[in-house]
Design a protein around this nucleic acid. Structure first.
Length: 499
RNA sequence: GGCCCGUUCGUCUAGUGGUUAGGACAUCGGGUUUUCAUCCCGAAAACAGGGGUUCGAUUCCCCUACGGGCUACCA
């Protein structure tokens, strides 16, 4: 039974890199009919952000990543589900104490009483003498350098202490990584990691290992930044006598400048992309392809497709640049190919935001149908949902202001343009009833009328389109006319005649 | 500084000893189209460098360079 987990700290927004890590963990679990769980790693009380947990889970569910176990949201309230809980580390406080004590008893952990200043000094000296930057066990104040008596006294006097992991001497620590293969690090490079802080809270390393074991996690899927500390984790599993899970360390997401994706250089959080009008399907598809591919030339993958095809043997080791252009392309693909009703529904909040609508839900069926047509006009011409309201703004504007010269097609003249507009006005007025007013009928009729009169198509259609849109570039005149309806269409043509 | 990880077109990548090194985004050119967008066709564009191993290296090994990560009582 495969069990994977995503274990964020509640420090605020979910980073797109975090979304990708969660996605890969989710996909792997799904593919193997296992469970995907969420655990909150809030052992650092200084980094807690109010509402952080909700936001992260919210972002995951926006991306359609379903949580099987652990921390989730129900009616916007945090709930925990599953047999292995609690799933929030601050609620598991005693547990870590207990396991830390076991390590102490078995000699894998020891007391250390050094102050922050002493540790700073140690590092300073090491740096100056070009020694390794690891805890100098032999020259600091700890179970090794102090007598049992002294340790006992310090403890009795309630002196602050930490528990450190005793790293074995002169040993090559090896582990297999699903994306990197065999990784080896010599124990002399590994620090005597603090396991229990002086405030009694565990560090990531202890809590992570204890929880992954207790929650029966089979595959630890996380970012590359954890690779250097994995030997500590391997040693911890061994010290406890537990079998270590399988590791998979994902490469990082970087920006165009090849640096770690960060807030300073633009959008990084999932909410940013949601608010910019990206479709979750597009973001997920794009992000999955940053470091993974199916091995052939297909590019459009639904979450279901990804679930069945994802595997770590096709995950690349190199970091990937988060390229906005490609994301935009994906988003367009999804906007164009998604069911119009659905796209429109999702665009509603953006229309509201732009003040075109006064609400983000529409119950009236007819009103919604009209909006669908409006959305359809521009959905293939914009990158995101957020750009839609502005793009269709001309539909809602009752007086378009544009340079009359814009009505003139190529080498034609103002007079000719107006002549054509007057003629088309008459034709539409007389020949096409309200009932027959749709783009197919309009096009059929107008085009044959143009042919009969041997007019140039552009000579008629260009001024008509400009009269209806007021813009140099826009959808075609028949599409716009359909959305506008007969009355408004004629009104706009007549307005153009007056310019 | 030390350790670890990485390196194929500008970008995402395919490729696992013998290929005209393929695709996608972006770019440029052409076509369809009343404009834009779409669509179609085409072009330019890459194996970081140096040593090995081999009949033969993008592919395997080593070194160098470059990039990144870690080096906290943060995760």
């Amino acid at each position: 039974m495969v069990r994977t987990r995503f274990a964020p700290s509640p420090t605020g927004m979910l980073h797109v890199g975090g979304l990708r890590t969660a996605l890969f963990a989710y996909l792997y679990a799904r593919k193997h009919k296992g469970d995907f769980l969420i655990r909150i790693e809030d052992t650092d009380r200084n980094r807690f952000v109010e509402g952080g947990i909700e936001q992260i889970i919210d972002s995951l569910s926006w991306g359609n990543i379903k949580i099987d176990e652990g921390v989730m949201l129900e009616n916007n309230a945090i709930v925990q589900k599953g047999e292995k809980g609690p799933y929030i580390q601050s609620e598991r406080f005693e547990l870590y104490q207990k396991y830390a004590m076991k390590l102490l008893e078995s000699g894998h952990a020891y007391y250390a009483f050094d102050t922050a200043e002493e540790l700073d000094k140690m590092r300073e000296v090491q740096l100056a003498s070009k020694q390794k930057q690891v805890y100098a066990r032999a020259s600091m104040r700890n179970s090794f350098t102090l007598s049992q008596e002294e340790v006992k006294n310090l403890l009795a006097a309630q002196a602050p202490y930490v528990l450190r992991l005793r790293i074995p001497e002169n040993e090559m620590i090896e582990f297999d990584d699903l994306v990197r293969g065999k990784v080896k690090i010599h124990s002399s490079e590994v620090d005597d990691q603090i396991l229990l802080k002086s405030d009694g809270f565990p560090t990531y390393h202890l809590a992570n290992v204890v929880d992954d074991y207790l929650m029966e996690i089979t595959h630890v899927i996380r970012g590359e930044e954890w690779l250097p500390s994995t030997p500590k984790h391997v040693l911890l599993y061994r010290a406890f006598g537990w079998q270590a899970p399988t590791f998979a360390h994902l490469s990082l997401l970087i920006n165009e400048q090849k640096q770690k994706l960060s807030k300073r250089h633009g959008d990084v959080s999932v909410t940013d992309f949601k608010e910019k009008g990206y479709l979750p399907e597009a973001l997920i598809n794009f992000i999955a392809f940053l470091g993974w591919n199916p091995g052939d030339e297909r590019e459009i993958f639904s979450l279901e497709d990804l679930t069945s095809e994802f595997d770590f043997d096709k995950v690349s080791k190199a970091p990937a640049v988060f390229n906005r252009e490609k994301l935009n392309w994906y988003n367009r693909q999804y906007m164009m190919n998604m069911d119009l009703h659905e796209v429109t529904r999702r665009a509603l909040p953006f229309f509201k935001h732009q003040g075109i609508l006064d609400r983000d839900e529409i119950d009236d069926k007819e009103e919604f149908e009209v909006l669908k047509k409006i959305v359809n006009l521009e959905r293939g011409r914009v990158d995101t949902l957020a750009e839609l309201p502005a793009a269709v703004g001309f539909i809602f504007s009752d007086d378009l202001s544009y340079d009359p010269g814009l009505l003139v097609w190529k080498k034609s003249t103002v007079e000719d343009a107006k002549d054509k507009l007057q003629q088309i006005y008459n034709v539409l007025q007389a020949d096409i009833s309200e009932e027959m007013w749709n783009k197919e009928t309009l096009e059929e009729h107008v085009i044959s009328w143009i042919k009969e009169n041997e007019y140039g198509v552009g000579d008629v259609l260009w001024p008509t389109r400009v009269a209806l849109s007021g813009q140099k570039n826009s959808p075609g005149p028949f599409e716009i006319a359909e959305v506008l309806g007969k009355e408004k269409t004629l009104q706009r043509i007549s307005n153009a005649l007056k310019t």
